[in-house]
Design a protein around this nucleic acid. Structure first.
Length: 331
DNA sequence: ATTCCACCGGAATAGCGGGATA
DNA sequence: TATCCCGCTATTCCGGTGGAAT
């Protein structure tokens, strides 16, 4: 039933981007000058998850790579490389100068290599709001050869933490805002994936409607649901996907992401998370008391606070309220 | 309006572990 | 093998903040 599983994966990049031509053209317009040897504009892509930001950014890099010789491009997911060293390392990977970099290489050396670039280098920094060391962004901006395409959910997550110089530099670039996909658009995206990856009658139009409605404009979620449903059907030897499988896949897709993140937690972090899952919204003090009662060698309050910001980063936990009225709850 | 308290998160610091080097 | 260096995690200290109490 599955003919090409690859097209249902998260990182699959279609040969053509649908429903995002306007955004596509603006980004291409910003980067295009580099083909003629001129200085391209930096860009900022903002919008909700699954709205096509990453897709457009990666697609544009590929196009650029085809059009221009002597232009390096690279995509970096800041989520997985949030500290200074890892991010620099990842960026250097794109120009192939990491052959002799190891942990004892001074950071300055990494930055110096970037400063010595002689060819234009266009980098996409996805989830850029996750970068811990914001001064690194400024240092990267200072390198003339580097053009940055920043990707984030909310504009203020990026601009709010930067200094004024960097902010004005960003404003002079291209800011492209993405909205959620409509249900119609999601369905047509799903139809493409079905055509490329599944047997033609494996899924009905009504079922795609259902998936689109559940995904609330998030293409990544919609595709995940389709992937899970198809995988289950395939495993059981069915030749088409039943409605039940779709319904089961909708919550399962969300659970899957959370589960993956939860597996990355240390035992102490896991305890904190489990306490929130079990006991609903908790005040920080209350949470800490319970935590201390639950483990043998408790970490300090400050450490638990760091855990909680990490849990929020992983979308496992949500906080509301400020100061003393703050409450944490599991998602 | 002012004070108070719990909480937030940055900065400096120490110990640990792993890879590189001599 | 011993040593060094660095990143990582946790700790300590502390200034800032916002809701609640006075």
């Amino acid at each position: 039933m599955i003919r090409n599983a690859r097209v249902l994966l998260d990182d699959f990049l279609p040969r053509e981007v649908v429903h995002r031509h306007e955004e596509m053209n603006r980004l291409a317009g910003a980067l295009e000058p580099v083909v003629a040897g001129d200085r391209p504009q930096d860009a900022l892509l903002v919008g909700p998850s699954g709205a096509g930001k990453t897709c457009i950014a990666r697609y544009s890099l590929d196009r650029l790579q085809e059009q221009a010789l002597g232009v390096d491009t690279h995509y970096v997911d800041c989520w997985q490389h949030s500290n200074r060293f890892r991010l620099l390392y990842k960026i250097l990977e794109g120009v192939g100068t990491t052959y002799d970099v190891h942990r004892s290489t001074p950071h300055d050396e990494l930055l110096r290599r970037l400063e010595e670039l002689s060819d234009p280098y266009v980098i996409v920094l996805d989830e850029v709001d996750q970068v811990e060391d914001k001064s690194l962004l400024r240092e990267l901006y200072a390198i003339p050869e580097i053009t940055m395409v920043l990707v984030a959910n909310r504009e203020r997550d990026v601009t709010g933490t930067l200094d004024e110089r960097l902010r004005s530099r960003l404003r002079s670039g291209e800011t492209i805002r993405f909205g959620r996909y409509s249900d119609e658009e999601l369905v047509s995206i799903l139809e493409d994936r079905v055509r490329w990856g599944l047997d033609p009658d494996a899924v009905s139009r009504d079922q795609l409607d259902r998936i689109a409605a559940a995904a609330a404009g998030n293409a990544r979620d919609a595709i995940s649901v389709l992937r899970l449903a198809a995988r289950d059907a395939q495993r059981d030897g069915a030749d088409r996907i039943s409605d039940e499988r779709i319904e089961a896949a909708i919550p399962a897709a969300r659970r899957e992401i959370r589960q993956k993140n939860a597996e990355k937690l240390s035992p102490h972090q896991r305890t904190v998370y489990d306490l929130l899952v079990e006991h609903g919204p908790l005040a920080p003090g209350d949470l800490y008391d319970r935590y201390r009662a639950a483990v043998d060698d408790p970490r300090t309050r400050r450490t638990i606070r760091s855990y909680l910001t990490k849990l929020e980063r992983y979308n496992l936990v949500e906080s509301e309220g400020e100061g003393p009225s703050r409450r944490y709850r599991s998602l």
